[in-house]
Design a binder for these strands. Structure first.
Lengths: 216, 216
DNA sequence: GTTTAAATTGACCGCTGAGTCAACAAAATC
DNA sequence: GATTTTGTTGACTCAGCGGTCAATTTAAAC
């Protein structure tokens, strides 16, 4: 069953290449020619598997989002308490495999296109809705006041945005640990000295590390 | 002395038009032709005043940033206490004249170009440095621990980024007031029940309103 | 081994965009 | 009023893009 058709393999290859080229050269510099070269194939071959450039880039973005989501789902499945779920989401959003300037470049490039591409708009909305929903439900189930959980979820997702932005712009040489520290200081103020929270943080941190190590 | 040379007038016109076109059509859709049409002039005329497209867009971005900075300076000059300075910066960053989706589109488009344009990189660095510096010095002079002031300044500037991002992506129909409320809830947790702070907030809010009304 | 289907590509087309240039119009200077 | 300087533009070049297509190679089926 693992056997994939050549068509599927090629589509994967080209979509992956498209995302890399996008990260490297931006939306302007992402031409069919370059994407093709990046895989060693010809431009016509790319257009054989994708009806046009827009379709290619859209699946590239969707693919990138899927890998992020999969990691989040995997970590969430290993979490057993609300706080663990909360930190699972955080860890997934700052996974060493994805929280890199190159990936952030691709993400920002997509954001810049959102106003002119309804598909991207939908995708963005879905991403934000899922993120907020995950954060909110986790926080609420810790026993927090729903209103407070809602506000905190918004704040955290805002911080995540800002941190990804800076990762892309490479301001202050931001790295994964600093990013997570930033979130922690804010959440610490809202939920101070919570023994469950701190334990969950430790646990998900090690689980995430093991998870990454395992994949390599 | 107010007399400006035609060259200066044209450069202003074209730069302003370039920013508007950028906001409307994104970086891809910002062609010399469109910018020219937007002012009623010809494409060749634009190239008479700007050596090339890149130079045009760069001055457009610099110009947009300058208007933001001027508003910040004006509000800061009306502030007399540290907390008032803090809220002057906040008000300037969420001024009704600038905190609009169209402007945010332009800003995000620039961010997407940063990795491929050293000029934009420098501009971005300058903007962030100034923002953080303003926030930090204001917070520090309220008597707060410098380390705490530093962390809070970072958090607030992160939130500002995230809020502008969402303004551009038009997620959750974010408006000015909600944005400022978000910041307030976070800062309230770090500096709770501070009578000076709340007074400063009120004052700068009304000053900013008067400032905007006065300009119209 | 032959036939059939799928995969791949070079050559080509139409179009649009950035940038050049020489010609023209309009002030400014004398 | 003649001359020079400045502003403005249409017509042009040239390159690169997305996209089509027919031809060719490769693999599969029988």
């Amino acid at each position: 069953m693992g056997r994939k058709s050549i068509a599927e393999i090629r589509r994967e290859e080209f979509a992956a290449a498209a995302f890399e080229v996008l990260s490297l050269h931006g939306m302007q510099g992402t031409t069919l020619q370059r994407v093709a070269e990046h895989t060693g194939a010809s431009k016509a071959s790319v257009l054989h598997y994708f009806s046009n450039k827009q379709a290619l880039i859209e699946t590239a973005m969707r693919r990138a989002n899927t890998t992020l989501r999969k990691e989040a789902v995997a970590l969430l499945s290993l979490a057993s308490t609300p706080w663990e779920r909360f930190y699972a989401v955080i860890e997934a959003n700052f996974s060493p495999t994805t929280f890199r300037p190159e990936v952030a470049h691709g993400w920002i490039a997509m954001c810049a296109e959102v106003p002119h591409n309804p598909q991207f708009q939908r995708l963005q909305n879905a991403i934000y809705h899922r993120l907020h929903s995950n954060l909110y439900s986790a926080l609420k189930e810790t026993g927090a006041d729903p209103a407070k959980a809602n506000v905190s979820a918004h704040t955290v997702s805002l911080l995540i945005d800002g941190l990804w932005m800076r990762c892309g712009l490479q301001i202050g040489g931001l790295n994964r640990d600093e990013a997570m520290t930033q979130i922690e200081t804010v959440i610490e103020q809202s939920f101070p000295n919570d023994i469950d929270r701190l334990a969950a943080r430790e646990k998900m941190c090690t689980i995430a590390q093991a998870f990454v190590a395992n994949k390599v």
